[in-house]
């Protein structure tokens, strides 16, 4: 019994969480994608996330990105389970 529980814990521990990706406003329409999840394998930076979801479509000029709800840039590193978002310049207020 103990052995079984131990192996389950090990299995959960080793399983990488996918990266959650969200798109907003004109960026959602550009890629025709609202939200998705991608495996962390081969993903190191925000730019890698864009390539994984957009393929050959270039990132529009002035694209903003966020990781875990904080503004960042294309070179920012990504860990498993992170939430990455792409969106155009903000226009609130």
């Amino acid at each position: 019994m103990t052995k079984t529980l131990g192996s389950i814990r090990q299995c959960v521990h080793n399983e990488n969480m996918p990266v959650k990706v969200k798109l907003f406003a004109s960026m959602r329409e550009y890629l025709d994608l609202n939200e998705t999840e991608i495996p962390i394998e081969n993903i190191e930076t925000v730019a890698d996330v864009w390539q994984a979801i957009a393929g050959d479509k270039p990132m529009p000029e002035n694209t903003l990105c966020a990781v875990n709800l904080e503004h960042t840039n294309e070179a920012a590193g990504i860990s498993d389970g992170d939430e990455v978002a792409f969106f155009p310049p903000v226009t609130g207020g």
Partner: peptide, 25 residues
């Protein structure tokens, strides 16, 4: 600060019924 950092986006519907995203503040 709100206008430059808070993630809000406006989409306008014009009186001629076309629509467009507001591109910048």
């Amino acid at each position: 600060a709100l206008k430059s950092r808070a993630p809000f986006w406006k989409k306008e519907t014009l009186t001629n019924q076309s629509s467009r995203w507001v591109e910048k503040n």
